[in-house]
Design a protein around this nucleic acid. Structure first.
Length: 127
DNA sequence: ATGCTGACTATGT
DNA sequence: TACATAGCCAGCA
């Protein structure tokens, strides 16, 4: 481990990006197998409401083999988002998800009504 | 410092 | 349902 540089007094007033990424990774890590969550959902869970794009950034910056289930994050339409990076594992994402039991419809989208993870999945007793 | 881009989303046509 | 726009913020030229 490399010793971490302590921020000078005039900087680091706001939470470092690293912490933001860590929060996002932690939120993604909570998604159970066989379920998916949207970028916006993860942002809110990480305490960054409305910052869905940052989730995409954090995952893009995520090194491989970290154990974070990045493949379980999809966009609000239930589809695997397009990468700008040609080497993106966009196709792999779908393969992994299907292997985990997530199903895609004919349009290549995941029925969120059925596969979206619901942290609050409280058992409601009908009205 | 400024301007653009991007693994996004909500809203309006 | 599909497309266009505005809002959001971090990274990079």
């Amino acid at each position: 481990m490399e010793p971490r540089r302590r921020p000078a007094r005039h900087e680091a007033v706001k939470p470092p990006p690293e912490a933001t990424h860590a929060r996002i990774h932690a939120a993604v890590a909570r998604i159970p197998r066989g379920r998916v969550a949207t970028y916006g959902q993860i942002a809110a869970l990480a305490g960054l409401p409305g910052q869905a794009r940052l989730v995409g950034y954090a995952l893009h910056a995520l090194p491989a083999a970290t154990g974070v289930p990045w493949q379980r994050v999809v966009n609000a339409r239930g589809e695997v988002s397009r990468r700008s990076d040609p080497g993106g594992h966009e196709a792999l994402q779908r393969v992994i998800l299907e292997h985990e039991g997530v199903r895609f419809d004919a349009r290549g989208r995941i029925p969120l009504a059925r596969f979206q993870w619901r942290p609050r999945g409280r058992p409601r007793r009908g009205p």
